[in-house]
Design a protein around this nucleic acid. Structure first.
Lengths: 181, 181
DNA sequence: CACATTCGCCTAACACCTTTAGGTTGCGTG
DNA sequence: CACGCAACCTAAAGGTGTTAGGCGAATGTG
């Protein structure tokens, strides 16, 4: 559903509608129902497409890189994709049912993050904790930036992003031992 | 709009609708239009309520704490609130127009995060970078956990959360100097 | 006390989105 | 050539959002 993805980027994922898509395609609404099962289905397809594209870009960026290089490369894939395709990025946040999620490119994303950690000295279960942390930062920062969280204030968002990647790299190199609790 | 917030928690923020709210209230739909200007307005009010509640809990939790204690306290406010009130939490992610955002409890949130950093040795602009990083992690982790990102897999999500707070605390204590670029 | 105002609710009506049912046309294949 | 399929159509029903205008009860005032 490339047309759907383009529509999402243009008017926002939340505003994607079968009717609007039909209008753009110069076609009557019910005609689209031979291509998508429902409005929900349309949105799901956009989400799956976006997850794939994002995973493809990620693995391309990761090839031949390690350590902080790899960290920054993958992080920038997310940020750049979200800025380039805000509607598609928003689609990736759509909740999918368990089965769909498993057959999506979702698992590739956590694998990529895990791959980055090969450049650092982490063993299970800390590796999984770190995967979750990195995923949280990527997703959190990009989505806050997108919804205008810290848009026009003092330090440039790009500068914060660079310094955050510095800090994450340092954190992964000095991952703290499990404390007694 | 407490009734709206309760509805959001029950059926999900995305499913909140003037019609459904009217149905629950045992009232005809147009009757609600003397209380809210529009469907958008209803959702905005829920978002504002949630932002306030969350800020109130945050400042209560922060009182009398510093350093890692404060970090964990605020972080847990977000996570607990999201688990307790998923619909309201989702509402806080709704984009608000600039004016509404400024008059909302939104600014209190960044102030609280900044307050945590008083326990660490950071000066501007690194303090702002750190505020953005912490905000990203809180928001990112909580929202990934909520949409089932890492729900039923190996290390418990609560364990990851604890270790992530350890790592963030260590990172803030050893914030890296700005590198040459 | 009578009145006017206000408040909360209602019905009617329109526009738009979703979805299903069923019919048309055109084109490639056996 | 006949068949079947693909892609489109019209018709119609049901739900949500929204506006307009009206009704009755509570309330505060001269």
């Amino acid at each position: 559903m490339l047309a759907g993805a383009e529509l999402a980027d243009e008017i926002g994922f939340a505003a994607v509608t079968v009717s609007e898509l039909a209008r753009r395609a110069g076609v009557k609404v019910p005609s689209l129902y031979s291509h998508v099962r429902s409005s929900q289905d349309l949105k799901t397809r956009i989400a799956l497409l976006a997850l794939e594209e994002l995973a493809d870009r990620g693995s391309a960026a990761l090839a031949g890189r390690a350590g902080k290089d790899a960290l920054a490369a993958l992080a920038n894939v997310y940020r750049d994709y979200a800025r380039e395709h805000p509607g598609r990025y928003a689609a990736t946040q759509m909740p999918l049912d368990a089965e769909t999620a498993l057959s999506s490119a979702g698992p590739r994303h956590s694998q990529m993050t895990r791959a980055i950690l090969r450049g650092y000295d982490l063993t299970e279960p800390d590796q999984t904790h770190a995967v979750r942390l990195l995923g949280s930062v990527f997703h959190g920062y990009v989505s806050l930036e997108l919804t205008g969280g810290f848009s026009h204030s003092a330090p440039d968002s790009a500068e914060s992003w660079a310094r955050i990647l510095d800090a994450l790299d340092a954190m992964l190199r000095a991952w703290p031992p499990t404390p007694e609790r």
